[in-house]
């Protein structure tokens, strides 16, 4: 070996701010593709059918039940999870492994940048869906949408953030992320989350459902309820923890090429 050898410094110095810009560009461009908009349009059509099947007439309670218990805390988390995990699996394909991950961006920073870029794009997509829900609600003359809307939107934003992070973690661990997602949904969300004790706070959807219930006047706050700031903090902490674990796994993961993914 030749330990005394000296080499000239790199001609382009790595820059994290520029790297974030690059990751954002490459991610955002994919959201502008015609294929993506076609998929979104098809998804919106299905959502409209779900809305019409789940909400009838000028019934505010029925709308709130559908929006808070199904749309925000079941449909959105499931789709955000799938999109997040899929995005991470895409990063383990040749297009990223060979071209992006051979460049001087630390892998934890790459996971963070990718999460930010993906989540911003996902929030924009789901915002379109949310607008559709509001338009449909207005069409069937659900009253007081100006008050209800922001609260539901807050729940949606929190759910997308949390479950995109969880999707990133599962996508980093395995290509069979759906299995982990189903196990998590069965054990934590449908199991532990339904137990009427403090342990149910492990369920992010339970947290959000409770928060929305209180904000929308459907539930009476309990002494132990964490409130808006507490729930937001818990969900953000969940996101940070899942992302940190995803980044740690991704950092130590060997990239042996497309066959590995």
């Amino acid at each position: 070996m030749n330990p005394a050898a000296t080499f000239s410094p790199p001609r382009v110095v790595p820059n994290l701010a520029h790297a974030w810009g690059g990751v954002w560009r490459l991610t955002f461009r994919r959201f502008l593709l015609p294929g993506h908009w076609l998929t979104l349009a098809a998804g919106l059509a299905v959502l409209a059918l779900m809305f019409l099947g789940g909400v009838h007439g000028r019934d505010t309670d029925r709308f709130l039940g559908w929006a808070a218990d199904f749309y925000v805390t079941l449909l959105v988390p499931a789709l955000a999870f799938m999109a997040g995990a899929g995005a991470m699996r895409d990063e383990l394909k040749s297009g990223t492994v060979d071209y992006v991950l051979t460049r001087p961006v630390p892998r934890p920073a790459f996971v963070a940048f990718k999460f930010l870029a993906h989540t911003i794009c996902a929030q924009l997509d789901f915002l379109v869906a949310f607008v559709l829900v509001m338009v449909l609600a207005r069409a069937i003359q659900v009253p007081d949408l100006a008050t209800i809307g922001p609260k539901l939107l807050l729940g949606q934003v929190l759910m997308i953030t949390a479950f995109s992070g969880f999707g990133f973690l599962c996508g980093t661990i395995t290509s069979r992320y759906v299995v982990i997602g189903l196990v998590y949904a069965g054990v934590i969300e449908a199991g532990v989350g339904q137990i009427p004790t403090q342990v149910s706070k492990l369920s992010m959807t339970h947290q959000t459902r409770e928060l929305l219930g209180i904000l929308l006047g459907r539930l009476t706050p309990e002494a132990t309820s964490p409130g808006l700031a507490g729930t937001t903090g818990l969900i953000l902490a969940f996101t940070v923890v899942t992302l940190a674990v995803a980044a740690a796994i991704f950092t130590w993961r060997e990239l042996t090429g497309p066959a590995d993914s």
Binding site: H18, A19, L26, L33, V100
Partner: peptide, 22 residues
């Protein structure tokens, strides 16, 4: 294998930024 939907200039600009360029 290359990223779907990107034009060469978009792709190369993004990659250049990841390498540290403005």
């Amino acid at each position: 294998a290359m990223p779907a939907g990107l034009r060469p200039l978009e792709w190369l600009t993004g990659l250049g930024m990841i390498s540290g360029l403005s």
